[in-house]
Structures are given as C-alpha cells and as structure tokens.
C-alpha cells in the first residue's frame, strides 16, 4: 500500500492551498486539482473522501486544526496512488488515528504534520509506522493488521532516544 505521494491541504486566506507534499513527484496541475478535490463543498472535519484526479486515485481525511487566538482551521491529509488497488478503509483508519493521537497530545499543528510526512510515507512503504512526536509520545501503526485499529503506543518509552 505504497502511495505515490502524501499531501497536506489547508484553508488559506484566499481559499484552499497545498501546504506540502512528499515526495514532490506530482505535477503542478495535479496538485492544483487535488487541492480543490480533496475537500469537497460542504466538507466538515472528520469526513473522509476518495476519488480520482486524472489517472491517479486519492483518499483524503479532513480534520480541524486548532489555532491560538483564532477559530480552528480546516485541513486535509491526502494519500495519492497510481491505481485503486489500495485499502481505502485502512487509509481512513491510519489518518484518523494519527490526527486523533496528535490532538490527544496537543501536537496537532500544521508544521509538525508537514515534518512527519516523510516518516509517514516511509512507513507506508515498510508496512508500519513509528513516529516520535514528542519526548514522551510515539505513534506506532502496523499496516499489516489492516482490519484492526492501529496500535496506540503513545507514552511507551521503549527505544526512546529522549530517555
């Protein structure tokens, strides 16, 4: 279940904007189209959508991003694939789990998500993800067990370089 690329979209002052993508392999036109298609009209946080852009396929998870001194923003994390042979429900579970864990640890910040995109992408390739999100919190997701909820290993200090 290796995606072609992972992307991050947010609502900017003028409209939806692509914050980041990893790896940067998608043409500009695809990124532009993806920016608007990833968050359909009337989309709300917690919603999940899958569709196509040209010959590519994608799944996006929409979430609310807390902002200090301002209202929450709306964002989407997207996985783009070459074909439809990927586990859509698995993607939904991974994305929703990741966002929930970041929120629980008050680490739901755009720059942090941007920072962990490469790790997340590598994890998709390897079949499991282990992302250290703070000195005491690590998110572990095992893709092989696609039907189960991802494993929450937050606060597990084993193998913790910060110990």
């Amino acid at each position: 279940m290796k995606p072609l690329s992972l992307c991050l979209v947010q609502m900017g002052d003028k409209g939806l904007e692509m914050v980041s993508s990893h790896p940067k392999v998608l043409p500009k036109e695809v990124l532009n189209e993806l920016t608007y298609k990833s968050m359909p009209m009337g989309a709300k946080a917690g919603e999940f959508a899958s569709s196509s852009v040209g010959d590519l396929f994608y799944s996006s998870y929409i979430f609310s991003l807390p902002r200090e001194g301002s209202r929450d923003n709306i964002c989407a994390i997207i996985a783009v694939f070459n074909d439809m042979k990927y586990n859509i429900d698995g993607i939904r579970k991974i994305f929703s789990f990741l966002i929930k864990e970041l929120e629980t640890n008050t680490l739901l910040k755009l720059d942090l998500i941007e920072e962990i995109l490469p790790n997340l992408y590598n994890g998709f390739s390897k079949g499991n993800i282990r992302i250290k999100i703070s000195s005491v919190a690590t998110i572990t997701i095992d893709f092989e067990n696609k039907t189960e909820e991802p494993i929450d290993e937050t606060n597990v200090l084993e193998d913790d370089l910060w110990k």
Partner: peptide, 10 residues
Amino acid sequence: ETQPTMGINR
C-alpha cells in the same frame, strides 16, 4: 465555535 465554510453551508 466554527470552522471555515467550504463553499456553501445550507
């Protein structure tokens, strides 16, 4: 508390 409106909210 609200979030940005995606297009039109009915």
